[in-house]
Amino acid sequence: MKITILNGSPKPEKSASEGMANALRERIERTAARTEQTEQTEQTEQTEQPDVTICHAAKQRHAEIVDILAGSDVLVLIFPLYVDGIPSHLLRLLDENQEAISEAASGATVYAVVNNGFYEAGQNNNAIEIIRNFSEKTGLQWGQALGIGAGGMVGVAPIGRGPMKNLGKALDQLTDRILHRKTDPDQLIEPNFPKFLYYKAAHIGFRQNARKHGLKVKQLYDRP
């Protein structure tokens, strides 16, 4: 089984999308290895270890990504919410290469993991619809989308623990769906962390960051 994960963050590294892409790949490989071991014990047919590749829409050329996508059974798009939609560089990749992707990954099942900096996971719904529309227009199969709230917390705590417990569970379930190419209703995931504390932590972070850049806090309110 060939699985291509497309990281749609414009950040070259250390993004929430990258963290989730790595966590998903690790889960897919671990789960598949465990399944293989069980099946060998039971002397059933050996399961093929999936081939999982992560590509980066902002760092790799379109043609290179389309080549990687060739023959994929599963395409997972992981990206941040930008102005209620998908980041422009990822949108451009999907728009300009629609036909090439349709041919390269013909029949592939599409999954999406969308994270936003707000708290409410439901604010990802429009971006999820855009990916569904892409999937439908490109003739690919729709699998499922996860909408993740408070994406900025990915990286603050390990996925699967503490405030990121719900996210870990959701990625475990997504792993199972991907390995069986199942279709399920979309799922919305918020952190195991109160909203008011999320606001507080974010606001402290903004002020600290401003000072780091030599700004006074009141300058954050400038009106150019």
């Binding site: 930008y82 102005v83 939609g85 998908i86 980041p87 422009s88 560089h89 949108l91 451009r92 999907l94 728009d95 300009e96 707000f118 708290y119 409410e120 604010q123 429009n126 619809e129 855009i130 990916i131 529309n133 892409f134 227009k137 606001y199 974010a202 606001h203 903004f206 954050l220 309110y221």
Partner: peptide, 29 residues
């Protein structure tokens, strides 16, 4: 795909400075 084109989106994505980074709630959101 139900949204603006990549060219328009590139302009919009570069414009989030139109609002402040700070959060507030509108109808609980």
């Amino acid at each position: 795909f139900g949204g603006v084109s990549p060219d328009i989106k590139a302009v919009f994505d570069r414009s989030i400075g139109y609002v402040l980074p700070f959060f507030y709630k509108v109808s609980g959101e």
